[in-house]
C-alpha cells in the first residue's frame, strides 16, 4: 500500500491541493464576477463554481500516475484503493464545504461538495472512456454551465447542476448518479495489459 501511496503522488500532490482547496474556500467563498451568459447576456457567477476544479484536477492527475508493472502483475486490490481515495477526497470537500457553509451561512459553500462529487464523476467517466479529454471535461463543464446553464431569468437549468442551491433535489440526485457511475467505471476498469 505504501508504494501505491507514493505512486499516486498523494502526499506530494493531492494533500497540498486539498489544503489549497480548503484555504481558497475559506478566503474566497464570497467572490463574484460578471461573466458572459448566453440566455441573459451576462450573469453574476460565484467563484465557488470554479473552485472544485482544484480538487478534481488533482484527483485526475493522481489517478493517472500508475506503476503499470506493479499494478498489472500483482494481485493487490488497487482499484479498491483508488475508490477509497476518491471517496475520501470527495468526502473531505463535502465536509469542508458544509463547515464553511455552516460558519458563514452561505448556501453556495454548502453546495461545493456536491459539485466536486459531480465533476469527479464526470472526470472518472471521461478517464475511463476518453482518457485524452479527461483533464478538459470538468473545466469544460464549468465553462458550459456558466455560459449556457441558466435561462433568461438566471435560473439554473436542470442539467447544469453546479449553480443550483445546496438543497435542490434534482441537482443532488444528478450529482450522486454521476459520481456513482464514475466510481463504478473506476472500480470495474480492467488494468490495461502491457
Amino acid at each position: 500500500m505504501i508504494w501505491w501511496f507514493k505512486a499516486r503522488r498523494i502526499p506530494a500532490v493531492l494533500l497540498p491541493l486539498c489544503a489549497a482547496f480548503a484555504v481558497v474556500l475559506v478566503l474566497a467563498y464570497d467572490w463574484t464576477a460578471t461573466l458572459p451568459a448566453l440566455a441573459s447576456g451576462s450573469s453574476t457567477v460565484r467563484f465557488l463554481t470554479f473552485v472544485p476544479v482544484i480538487v478534481v484536477a488533482a484527483l485526475h492527475h493522481c489517478l493517472s500516475q500508475r506503476l503499470d508493472a506493479a499494478e498489472v502483475l500483482s494481485r493487490r486490490p488497487v482499484p479498491r484503493y483508488d475508490v477509497v481515495l476518491v471517496l475520501a477526497t470527495v468526502g473531505f470537500t463535502v465536509l469542508a464545504g458544509l463547515a464553511v457553509g455552516a460558519l458563514t451561512g452561505d448556501d453556495a459553500a454548502r453546495a461545493v461538495g456536491r459539485n466536486v462529487a459531480f465533476l469527479t464523476g464526470l472526470m472518472l467517466l471521461a478517464h475511463r472512456f476518453v482518457p485524452q479529454a479527461a483533464a478538459g471535461v470538468p473545466v469544460g463543464w464549468v465553462f458550459l454551465s456558466v455560459f449556457a446553464g441558466s435561462d433568461a431569468y438566471r435560473r439554473p437549468r436542470f442539467w447544469s447542476v453546479l449553480e443550483h442551491p445546496a438543497a435542490a433535489v434534482p441537482a443532488l440526485v444528478e450529482a450522486l448518479l454521476c459520481f456513482a457511475a464514475g466510481l463504478a467505471a473506476l472500480a470495474l476498469a480492467r488494468p490495461r495489459t502491457l
Binding site: 463574484t32 457567477v45 470554479f50
Partner: peptide, 23 residues
C-alpha cells in the same frame, strides 16, 4: 507543474480572476 493540473486550473482561474478585476 503537471499539465493535468496546470491546464484546468489556469483555464478556470484565469477566466474568473481576469473577469473579477472589474468588480
Amino acid at each position: 507543474v503537471p499539465r493535468a493540473i496546470a491546464a484546468p486550473l489556469l483555464a478556470a482561474g484565469g477566466w474568473y480572476l481576469v473577469a473579477f478585476t472589474v468588480t
